[in-house]
């Protein structure tokens, strides 16, 4: 082989590699671009962790093995009590919002969750989010037919640093709290037709309301590192919160559109 043909081969190889890369770039513009899982809102009832899909129904936490794309295998049904409403994944834990309280499950190496802690509260409607140290639970009476007499609209802050002993730290009155989203020290709490609250939570004993944005019917949120997705019955609205003291509305897709 001459030096020239070696150069040609090198050149061709270079182009082949370069072409592959650009083909990969084009393929990136799809929701399946990364092999990871997506992000759900706090009202989610499905979540994926590794090779397992976890779903909640009224009483149970269901576990499915999804390691094969061609087969979904039910592997366990774990009793979770009464009125299970939401599931929130964090590390090896699953936080369940139920009508009577918040449950913490630890997921074993086999994917099977075991109940390790719970916090009971008066019957109401309530999702949960957590950062592993603190959990934020909203309790809603408004538009919640299951709510017990005497229940109130509140945001409860729990110390979950020992997940076997969730401990109520503080409780704040709310209007009609639905879903919520946490990004480090900022907590967004949906208040239905009253919009959503932006709260600073670095001191759980002294949460500070920074702002309430009332121009949207907010049911649930997703925080994406400066981008806030808000969903209500009639719209998807997006905000830029990279400057928390100057939240900017970016766009809206509304009912009928």
């Amino acid at each position: 082989m001459s030096k020239y043909s070696l150069f040609l081969i090198t050149l061709l190889t270079f182009f082949a590699v370069a072409c592959e890369e650009s083909a990969a770039d084009i393929a990136l513009a799809t929701p399946g671009q990364s092999s990871s899982t997506g992000t759900g809102g706090s009202l989610a009832r499905f979540t994926i962790k590794g090779d397992f899909l976890y779903t909640v129904d009224a009483q149970n936490l269901n576990v499915f093995n999804i390691s094969s794309p061609d087969e979904t295998i039910p592997v366990a049904t774990v009793q979770a009590g009464f009125g299970v409403e939401t599931i929130y994944p964090l590390e090896n834990f699953l936080y369940l919002g139920t009508q009577n309280g918040m449950l913490i499950f630890q997921v074993g190496a086999d994917g099977i969750p075991a109940l390790i802690g719970n916090y009971n509260h008066i019957t109401s409607c309530d999702p949960v989010v957590s950062d592993g140290h603190f959990a934020y639970v909203t309790l809603r009476v408004s538009e919640c037919q299951e709510a017990a007499f005497g229940a109130a609209n509140t945001l409860d802050v729990l110390d979950v640093s020992d997940p076997t002993q969730p401990n109520l730290l503080s409780s704040y009155p709310m209007d009609s709290p639905y879903g919520l989203g946490l990004d480090e020290n900022i907590l967004f709490v949906c208040e239905g037709e009253r919009g959503f609250k932006v709260m600073e939570v670095s001191d759980p004993q002294n949460i500070v309301l920074l702002q309430q944005i009332t121009s949207v019917n907010a049911i649930d949120v997703i925080t994406l590192d400066g981008l806030l997705l808000v969903i209500g019955p009639d719209a998807v609205v997006e905000y830029d919160y990279s400057d928390i003291h100057n939240i900017q509305k970016l766009s809206e897709i509304a009912i009928g559109e």
Partner: peptide, 8 residues
């Protein structure tokens, strides 16, 4: 609408 999910 009722639920929201985000990916990529």
């Amino acid at each position: 609408l009722h639920k929201i999910y985000y990916k990529d």
